[in-house]
Write a protein that binds this DNA or RNA. Structure first.
Length: 452
DNA sequence: TTTTGAGTTGTTCGA
DNA sequence: GTCGAACAACTCAAA
């Protein structure tokens, strides 16, 4: 019999948690449930993410009875806690992000000096990054073949057990669970494992079958909103995949493809940690971009004069979340209409999104910018007006987030600048889309030939 | 090694 | 209004 530490990170749940089951199995004399607030997490106070994390940790603490929270550098704090209780091992789910994997290596090294093992069981994915390779052992660079291989590879069914341990808590300094209010006027989603399960079950009952039909309509807003729960591991994707298999149909198929996209981008970032801020396709380093300035601020504040873009950016500020279709539209606008490098937009998303995931965020941006995975057709330049008319035909989404335009009907709301009397207080279009589209095409032309 | 078919989410133009 | 073709050339993945 021995003691162990379960170091929670992005796996804030007790069921279907293989690392926790290992910690319990090895820790017959007790398991410390530990969470380390490092500066990456701690310095984001006042953000929706910080508020959500606090709520999720509180939910976990409530399930367990308590949670041992410390603040500091993981390589110091994990060692200190493990030694304080005389633990033989520290258990984690493997983290494959550039920051996380480096942190874990540092912790592993520090623990090793005291003969304490860092044991990785499972990951945040159905199929761990690095697992799926082409015949020549190199990683996939295109989604569809990855998806086929991913399906064929398959995944374990959920572990049908709850990690119930003899929890123990070392003496000594702890840190209160952050109790950060979200930015004024904002509410964060209900957090924790139970909330995640409930949300998922409700979604399956009400909306999954229609996922393929309505997921692109921001005004309808019947997306699952599971991203934040996945981000913190309040539910594991394999649990969701098992449920999808029980509810076959077009909706489940489409949803499964989106889960696979999350795994694909995690795999891509694992193989190319430099792409966290560097160009996946390096020939885009030669692309001419404009210095971000006033236009970046206008974009961030939802004052570009393009209704669907401004609605999206304001939703982000108001709710810490943005509909996926609109994420693509605003991203395309920043890169292709304002000629600002994708990294600036990606950073803003990381700052403001409650669900921000480093791999999905950075590679979603790189895809829009044309420098990411997948063939990058030069013609993929979203027309913000066409996109608005197509996906928010009635204008409901725009009306919800841009009060200056709330009085306009569906015919006028997408092009308010055409009105004889444009609405008071709403800015005129920052740029002429037709002109900037051609500008983007010509800048693309300059680096062509250098494309890989 | 060479060949072949295909590549998340688009837009515009002209019939 | 609707619909299909064109928009370049290249890379990827697999046979």
């Amino acid at each position: 019999m021995a003691k162990t530490v379960m170091w929670f990170r992005r796996d804030l749940r007790l069921s279907d948690n293989p690392a926790l089951l290992d910690a319990v199995a090895a820790g017959g004399d007790g398991v410390v449930p530990l969470f380390v607030l490092d500066d990456q997490l701690f310095d984001k106070s006042g953000t929706p993410r910080q508020a959500y994390l606090g709520a999720s940790l509180s939910a976990l603490a409530e399930q367990i009875g308590d949670l041992h929270v410390v603040h500091g550098k993981a390589s110091d704090e994990v060692v200190r806690v493990a030694r304080a209780v005389g633990a033989d091992s520290v258990h984690i789910a493997a983290d494959f992000t550039p920051y996380g994997s480096q942190r874990d290596e540092d912790v592993e090294k520090a623990l090793d000096e005291h003969d304490i093992a860092l044991l990785r069981t499972g990951s945040y994915y159905a199929v761990a990054p690095g697992r799926i390779r082409k015949g020549d052992n190199s990683p996939y660079r295109v989604y569809t073949p990855y998806f086929k291989a991913w399906l064929e590879h398959g995944w374990r069914p959920p572990a049908d057990r709850v990690g119930e341990a003899a929890w123990i808590f070392p003496d000594g300094r702890t840190h209160p669970i952050p109790d950060q209010a979200p930015p004024p006027g904002m509410t964060v989603p209900a957090a924790g494992e139970r909330a995640a399960r409930r949300r998922w079950a409700d979604y399956i009952d009400a909306d999954l079958a229609d996922y393929d039909d309505v997921r692109d309509l921001p005004g309808v807003d019947r997306t699952s909103r599971m991203s934040v729960h996945l981000k913190w591991g309040e539910i594991h994707p394999r649990t969701m995949l098992a449920d999808l298999a029980d509810h076959p149909g077009k909706g489940a198929d489409a949803y499964r493809r989106e889960i696979a996209f999350r795994e694909f981008y995690a795999d891509v970032l694992f193989h190319r940690p430099d792409t966290v801020d560097g160009y996946y396709n390096k020939s885009f380093e030669a692309m001419r971009y404009d210095d971000p300035g006033a236009v970046l601020e206008a974009w961030k504040n939802g004052r570009t004069g393009f209704p669907i873009v401004d609605a999206g950016m304001r939703q982000l500020l108001a709710e810490g979340w943005m509909h996926n279709r609109v994420r693509m539209i605003v991203a395309s606008f920043l890169v292709k209409d304002l000629h600002v490098e994708w990294q600036h937009g990606a950073r803003h998303f990381l700052d403001k999104l409650v669900d921000a995931d480093i791999a999905s965020n950075q590679h979603g941006w790189q895809w829009v910018a044309g420098c990411g995975t997948d063939a990058s057709p030069y013609f993929r330049i979203f027309n913000p007006t066409t996109q608005g008319k197509k996906f928010d035909a009635a204008g409901d989404y725009i009306r919800r987030y841009v009060p200056e335009l709330a009085g306009l009907d569906a015919r006028n709301i997408h092009e308010p600048w055409l009105l004889d009397n444009p609405p008071e207080g709403y800015p005129p279009p920052l740029v002429d889309h037709a002109v900037e589209r051609l500008e983007s095409l010509s800048r693309y032309d300059e680096i062509r030939g250098g494309i890989r």
